[in-house]
């Protein structure tokens, strides 16, 4: 696979948040301001790159049976390191991200890339995938955070925007606003790409993450 393609893949074509619809929990929860969104994106990117590289390195050593616990332990290790670092050097971001920082451990993007990419590809490719996916995740969170902050609070990176800061649409900065903005962005993305983005992700039984272990799959699909 073309190295550049791996890198760019995560940014647009397979954007984890907007196309693969992974990691939506932090994407909705912490994007009430631009800085929080970018901070969360960068923290997750760091963990994603590190875990991708380490899991790719250990892909031969990790027995298939215990791969998920091994991934979790590795990811949790990196998350805790990020947490301690943020607490020590970026206290305000640490306070803003709160519980979602430790929840990076169970972020689907990271575990998903470990399972889908890192354990099948070379170390360098995995690194590039981590960088690409990380940038894609961060961009998506930046976009959501910026939109919600600009229209919901009337500021951008805490700088007031004339005209908007006096009468902001306050609900956009609240939890429901996260869903609104998220839905709008996905809808626009699909419109722009003529529905290609949605086709990329097939919703049939084969592509379900639980396909292998699902009893419904043996009968030909869920609920049959």
């Amino acid at each position: 696979m073309n190295k550049l393609k791996i890198l760019v893949n995560g940014i647009i074509k397979e954007n984890p948040v907007l196309v693969l619809v992974l990691g939506t929990c932090p994407a909705l929860a912490v994007t009430n301001s631009t800085i929080n969104g970018v901070g969360m994106g960068l923290a997750a990117t760091f963990v994603l790159i590190c875990s991708n590289v380490v899991i790719s390195l250990l892909k031969k050593a990790i027995p298939d049976k215990v791969r998920i616990p091994c991934y979790i332990v590795i990811i949790a290790g990196f998350v805790t390191i990020v947490q301690l670092m943020l607490q020590a050097y970026m206290k305000s971001l640490y306070d803003a991200l709160g519980i979602f920082l430790s929840l990076i451990v169970v972020n689907c993007v990271i575990l998903g890339r470990a399972e889908m990419f890192a354990n099948k590809n070379s170390v360098f490719d995995s690194f590039l995938d981590g960088v690409g996916m990380g940038i894609g995740f961060t961009l998506a969170l930046f976009l959501m955070g910026a939109l919600r902050e600009i229209f919901g609070v009337g500021t951008f990176c805490n700088i007031p925007i004339p005209g908007l800061s006096s009468e902001p649409i306050a609900i956009l900065a609240q939890a429901p606003g996260g869903f609104f903005v998220y839905g709008f962005i996905i809808a626009i993305l699909n419109k722009v790409s003529n529905g290609k983005a949605v086709k990329r992700k097939s919703f049939d039984c084969e592509s379900c993450p639980s396909h292998a272990g699902c009893s419904g799959a043996l009968k030909g699909g869920c609920g049959r």
Partner: peptide
């Protein structure tokens, strides 16, 4: 034994 040992080592 091997899976347990690997997991322990990683931990």
């Amino acid at each position: 034994v091997v899976p347990a040992a690997v997991l322990t080592a990683i931990c």
